[in-house]
């Protein structure tokens, strides 16, 4: 067969390299699926639920995502619109949790909130336990998931025409009113796109969580515990739960984005 050269197209070495990576990324999923059986999956679900891992994970991931939205959206607006010294440094700091290992984040959190660390002891004296409790889990999850939301929200705010905010000012609306009636509604779809990413990252958080709060179990910590005690076969069904959550959320996000893509008009 003669291959007709096309004028545009990806040269075959690049094609091959790309396919190799796809294969490498996809094959573990296949082996994982082969190792799964329905009875084991149901049993693992039941055990995870009775260990409290499923509810703990859903609750803490949702709470940390809400906190990240409430605090991250103002930070994103500040980074998008503010003019101040050190803005570039602050913008880079937001990325820090992405580039440092989560374990390091856990150590840093312990250095501040640990039972013998200054802030941790102060809070402990007032009956507020951070480590080995859900506040510790939420702190660990926020640490790693905040960048996803802040970056998405910053881009969303930056794409709002500043002239719209100026016109709003001229119409007698001070900056806070303008933020809630112009900037936030217009940036909202973009912010929303960052929410599931932040939630998934919080749900899957392990490194910092395991340092700060081994108990109560979240799903990733529970997975690690099962693996340590009973090996890969026992860990696999829990991994499948986390994987399914990820795929489900991504599917919903894609659906929402596609639907709203038709609605957003210049």
């Amino acid at each position: 067969m003669r291959v007709i050269p096309r004028r545009t197209g990806v040269p075959w070495p690049l094609n091959a390299a790309g396919l190799l990576l796809v294969g490498y990324l996809v094959t573990p999923f296949l082996f994982g699926l082969v190792g799964l059986d329905a009875r084991g999956l149901v049993a693992a679900l039941r055990e995870a639920a009775s260990a409290g891992a499923i509810m703990t994970s859903l609750e803490t991931a949702t709470l940390s995502t809400l906190l990240v939205i409430v605090l991250g959206v103002p930070l994103a607006y500040l980074l998008a619109r503010g003019e101040f010294v050190g803005k570039a440094v602050l913008g880079a700091l937001v990325y820090l949790p992405l580039v440092i290992p989560p374990l390091v984040g856990g150590v840093l959190l312990l250095a501040m909130y640990g039972p013998y660390a200054p802030v941790g002891r102060w809070l402990g004296d007032r009956g507020i336990q951070i480590t080995d409790a859900w506040p510790g889990i939420v702190l660990a999850q926020m640490f790693v998931s905040a960048p996803y939301l802040v970056v998405a929200a910053r881009v969303a705010f930056e794409s709002v025409d500043p002239a719209l905010e100026q016109v709003s000012y001229a119409l007698g609306k001070p900056p806070l009113v303008t933020f809630f009636r112009v900037s936030l509604p217009l940036a909202w779809p973009g912010i929303l796109a960052g929410v599931p990413l932040a939630w998934l990252r919080a749900l899957g958080e392990f490194g910092a969580t395991v340092m700060v709060a081994y108990h109560p179990y979240t799903l990733p910590v529970y997975l690690f515990v099962r693996f340590g005690a009973r090996g890969v076969g026992a860990a696999l069904p829990v991994a499948a739960i986390l994987l399914a959550a990820g795929i489900a959320v991504l599917a919903v996000v894609q659906g929402v984005l596609r639907r709203s893509a038709g609605r957003i008009v210049p």
Binding site: D161, A163, L164, Q166, V167, S168, Y169, A170, L171, G172, K173, P174, P175, T178, V182, P185, L186, V265, P266
Partner: peptide, 20 residues
């Protein structure tokens, strides 16, 4: 006087109606 207390009406070349 800040813009929101100046009571000036502004219309710019770019379309600035609130799209939402």
């Amino acid at each position: 006087v800040p813009p929101w207390r100046r009571r000036v009406g502004v219309v710019l070349q770019t379309y600035t109606l609130l799209p939402h």
